[in-house]
Nucleic acid binder design. Structure first.
Lengths: 213, 213, 213, 213
DNA sequence: TATGAATGAGTTTTCATTCAT
DNA sequence: AATGAATGAAAACTCATTCAT
């Protein structure tokens, strides 16, 4: 793993390897961000090498989070790109939930982003990330508006509020192991619904209200 | 402030003082949790004394968060306790937003809770907190069901989803100072709406969808 | 070594212990400043404890340097305090050189002070140190002026220039072990005189010139 | 700047370029030695290339310091080479101070040399540097002895002690910016004389004493 | 009860140097 | 000769928590 990444393709690959190592580690224990030393080891690199590809530890996780977001947006985009049909909303919901199921760590990382990730991140990098996100968001929003015959701006509303509901519910329902045990007591059943079905129900309600003429 | 708190009333008062000191400090800089040393100083106590009233630092902030939740629930409760009227939903929304306006630090603390607060918290304490929250939630949920003529369980749904949307939007729209500056660029206007109006709009949509027969 | 230093006398003693540990370590290898971890171990304390007594690593060494300076000044002071006599200059020289002989690490630490020590030092602390030094300097300078019948300001000149010559010569003549070996070659004899005799000679010349009417 | 330096003349030129880049950088911020990466960039070379011309970072700065010394010696040499005259000492002092004024970074670099530069320097290189210095010193010393009618060895004494006084005073009087601010307080005026006039006065005293029969 | 002295785990980042290309 | 990707050692400092007084 010490073959030199000379051309920019190799460099991109190495960057991706580091990101992938970080993802594996975080997936394994998503209660805290792995240390740079751990990431380097997992990627088979020296610590210093990681810093050739990322300016700070935070940048690594922010890049990872952005990848997840991009993937999620892409999935949504794909749903609405398909020929219009009556069940587009159902298909959207299914695909959306499937993506989240496939990336259980996305919402964890997202929850940490608020208090940790944005510190210690170079402004230029941060802007680039945000811009990329914005563009994906805008494109998909426009597509949704087109498909559903909505007015300008509604697409972005729907996307942002959908994600807000998702993130908010996750944080309400994802308990750490010790809490999970504690809340197993039937008394707590009301505040311990299954995340996936709860999210499905909540989103249905929200979209119904939002799309109502 | 070193008079000994002997009877349980004095003890409760001292506990409240510590909590109050923590709140003041967090209000002053809600980007990070104040240290125990700071809290002790602010409360006019020694560090060790704080540990006579709280087992861990996290317990302090968890207790604080629970207070905020209780207050929010109480505000909502008050709205629905008043004689039924057509505009109950409008009054709810107004009151709800007003509470959040008055406690800008609630949502910050809440956002930190996920990644920080629940670690390192005694199970018994945690259970007690959760139970208290559950009870408030249940009571208000029942009241809402009664007032709005909803079926059992719907009240809790509404409350949890309302808060989820709130928390999720907050985390999307509350940027740290450096980001705020960065996002001042008109390019980013679409992802930088005002939190309050955005929340109002989102909640309206959600409730409309949820209450639709 | 973990008995608690409660009253201020004990605290001063503990502070002195830390300083003493740092001195021992530096004496042992005076090519580099020992790490805080080493100092703590040598003093039989935990790292964190060291930071209860000194704000930064630099403060430790600066305090140490100030102790050396104070000692040197005191030695000089004692010489001039004795009843005036013709040989006061001879006695001064003897005493001065003896002090330097007894503290070979003083001039090493001093040489490092320029590039290392003054960084990362709290202004208030720094000022206090400088003030203490200034006072010692002023007092001894006044005494010298009195004893030698010099005009105001001359004492300070003499002291500062004497020390400047001392420090400058030291840095010219103190070679690290590898260089010492290298310069053992007779070719280098001219630039490798014995520090002590060279300093004696240089100071004699300087004082002769300075005191000449 | 990546044309290959093949013949030894080109190589010497490239070496000089690196040295010059280091000098420019150090002149710009003489509180710390620039990194090798910075030097390479400033010289328009790759990091690795620098190591083709210098074995270690220290060698660069040591070579630079030697250049400064050589220049200083040459300036002194020139003074004494001129036809003997009564005011040779005055001219020496003027020229000496002028050289230091023109190279304010010399004394900074020199002060750092003690604790940093001589580590990690190859013995052979070190010897060569010292030998070069010795030769310059010897030649100028002989010239001085001749001009001033001094006995053998006195010239070297004068040069070394003169420089020692210079270096020692510099280190006493050159304060980093934060200290300068701190010592602006009139209380500290006595230990804050102007370096140049203080050096002039000190050297006058020293030379008077040294040349006195 | 209250105090505050003592503890010590835990991690990012820089940068001189090497060496494959 | 020139490049620049990769290496990895090295250390200060914070702060939650404990416990002797």
């Amino acid at each position: 793993m010490c073959a030199r990444a000379i051309d920019s393709e190799d460099k991109a690959a190495r960057r991706a390897e580091i990101l992938s190592a970080a993802r594996r580690l975080f997936l394994h224990d998503s209660r805290q961000l792995p240390s740079v030393a751990q990431i380097a080891t997992e990627a088979g690199l020296a610590k210093g090498t990681v810093y050739l590809y990322f300016q700070t530890k935070e940048e690594i996780f922010f890049a990872l989070l952005n990848e997840y977001f991009a993937g999620l947006l892409q999935a949504v985009h794909a749903v609405f790109e398909a020929p219009a049909s009556d069940d587009v909303l159902t298909r959207f919901m299914t695909r959306y939930l499937a993506y989240l199921d496939a990336c259980p760590e996305l919402l964890r990382l997202d929850a940490m982003a608020y208090s940790v990730l944005e510190r210690n991140l170079d402004d230029v990098i941060l802007r680039a990330f945000k811009l990329e996100l914005l563009q994906g968001l805008t494109a998909t929003a426009a597509l949704i508006e087109d498909r559903l015959g909505l007015s300008a701006g509604r697409g972005l509303n729907l996307l942002m509020r959908t994600y807000a509901l998702t993130r908010g519910l996750w944080q309400s329902l994802d308990y750490p192991p010790n809490l999970k045990l504690l809340l197993a007591d039937p008394v707590f059943a009301p505040i311990r619904p299954d995340f996936r079905s709860e999210l499905g129900a909540a989103l249905s309600e929200y979209w119904r209200g939002a799309l109502e003429s």
